[in-house]
Amino acid sequence: MSGIALSRLAQERKAWRKDHPFGFVAVPTKNPDGTMNLMNWECAIPGKKGTPWEGGLFKLRMLFKDDYPSSPPKCKFEPPLFHPNVYPSGTVCLSILEEDKDWRPAITIKQILLGIQELLNEPNIQDPAQAEAYTIYCQNRVEYEKRVRAQAKKFAPS
């Protein structure tokens, strides 16, 4: 494992614990031996107030490669969400998460999670990743928002 990646992720964890947006979660997972795995984080993004996503808490896994922060983490909703920019596998399609697009090593975990929260309610229809959600979003916004509200209710924190 890269010392650069681990040191950056340790800084990220410290900064997150000191200050993070209300309702968001970002925690490194534990290895079988109980030690912390900084390369694999369990996160959760709350649906934004005043949107059909409100009330939901959407679980996301963030996986970092050894060359982080040169390369972005892979962000994957578990379980996958109904959304035009979420692949059926759950992987998020967002330009700041793509090395050859808008990724920059200075982007923080907090910025990534806030960017994904923004994307939930403002899909990028130029870059669809899920045919069904994309089609319904474009053709029947009322039905799309109904499905999103049902999903938010399903993923409401207990």
Rank of each mutant, 00 (worst) to 15 (best):
S2W: 01
S7V: 11
L9N: 12
R13G: 03
D19R: 04
G23T: 00
G23C: 00
N31I: 09
G34E: 09
N37T: 12
L38H: 05
M39S: 05
W41L: 00
W41F: 06
E42A: 14
C43F: 06
C43L: 04
C43R: 03
A44S: 08
P46V: 09
P46A: 09
G47L: 01
K48H: 08
K48T: 14
G50N: 15
W53I: 02
E54G: 08
E54V: 07
F58Q: 06
K59T: 12
L60I: 12
L60R: 05
R61T: 13
F64W: 06
F64N: 06
K65H: 12
D66Q: 11
Y68E: 02
P69H: 03
S71E: 15
S71N: 10
S71I: 08
K74T: 15
C75R: 07
F77L: 07
F77S: 03
P79Q: 14
P79T: 13
P80T: 12
P80C: 06
F82E: 05
F82C: 04
N85A: 08
N85G: 01
N85M: 10
V86Q: 07
V86M: 12
G90A: 05
T91A: 15
T91P: 14
L94P: 01
S95K: 04
L97G: 06
E98M: 13
D102P: 02
D102E: 10
W103N: 00
R104N: 01
R104P: 00
A106T: 10
I107R: 06
K110C: 06
I112H: 12
L113E: 02
L114W: 13
G115Y: 05
G115T: 00
G115E: 02
Q117L: 09
L120Q: 08
E122D: 13
E122Y: 11
P123W: 02
N124P: 04
I125E: 06
I125T: 09
I125S: 08
Q126F: 09
D127V: 00
Q130Y: 06
A133H: 05
Q139K: 08
N140Y: 08
R141K: 10
R141L: 10
Y144Q: 02
K146R: 11
K146I: 11
R147V: 11
R147D: 01
V148D: 01
R149A: 06
R149L: 09
Q151R: 02
A152E: 03
A152D: 05
K153C: 09
K154C: 00
F155Q: 14
P157D: 10
